[in-house]
């Protein structure tokens, strides 16, 4: 396996080697899962992203995401005649951010494996609660396969952390699939 690893990496980056400068825009959607949070459940989301890659191994992107959390449940008056399960609003999240795309940023035909590292403005709104508006950070891998038609099919995963002060934070795992159109020089 160790001997095959460099070969695998080169194959995944082969698409990047073909591109000069690439500009792409795309949409994506998927799953938004809170990590160790009793007051929110998994939901869905979608996003828009514009990426510029002046070098095959380095690019940058700006993005907008609109996500929702599922409504969490708790049981009250357990083991009494008044026992009932109540929900509260999971809420919605809007995120504006920027990220660096590393190692497989180019837009040439073929597979591109990359890592993204970014920062964002994160705003969580829920009925009957004050909004939480903070800076968030994320890190994660992605794989895009660019077709001869300049359309790329992409899958990516992100771990997102949003420090909320006093040493606490909100953490989410995100899995998205989407498509991009590559405008740049191929």
């Amino acid at each position: 396996m160790k001997k095959l690893l460099p070969v695998i990496i080169l194959v995944l980056m082969a698409g990047s080697a073909q591109a000069l400068t690439d500009i792409s825009g795309g949409v994506y959607g998927g799953l938004n899962t809170p990590i160790v949070q009793d007051d929110a459940k998994s939901g869905t989301g979608f996003g828009l992203r514009v990426k510029v890659s002046p070098l095959p191994l380095l690019g940058g992107a700006v993005f907008y995401e609109n996500r929702s959390f599922g409504d969490p449940e708790q049981t009250f008056f357990e083991d009494t005649p008044l026992e009932r399960t109540e929900k509260t609003d999971g809420g919605k999240v809007t995120v504006f951010g920027a990220e660096a795309i590393l190692f497989g940023a180019g837009g040439g035909i073929g597979p591109h494996f990359y890592w993204m590292l970014g920062i964002s403005h994160y705003k969580w709104t829920r009925d009957n609660y004050d909004d939480i508006s903070k800076v968030g950070y994320h890190l994660g891998p992605g794989l895009e396969i660019v077709l001869p038609s300049k359309i790329g099919i992409e899958a990516k995963a992100k771990f997102e952390i949003v420090p909320t002060g006093d040493g606490g934070s909100r953490k989410n795992a995100l899995i998205f699939v989407g498509a991009n159109y590559h405008f740049g020089i191929m």
């Binding site: 160790v36 949070q37 007051d39 040493g167 606490g168």
Partner: peptide
């Protein structure tokens, strides 16, 4: 360091 400090926390609900 700041992020690492935030990693080991979670949100809980007590009744």
């Amino acid at each position: 360091v700041v992020i690492a400090g935030c990693l080991v926390s979670g949100t809980k609900v007590f009744i």
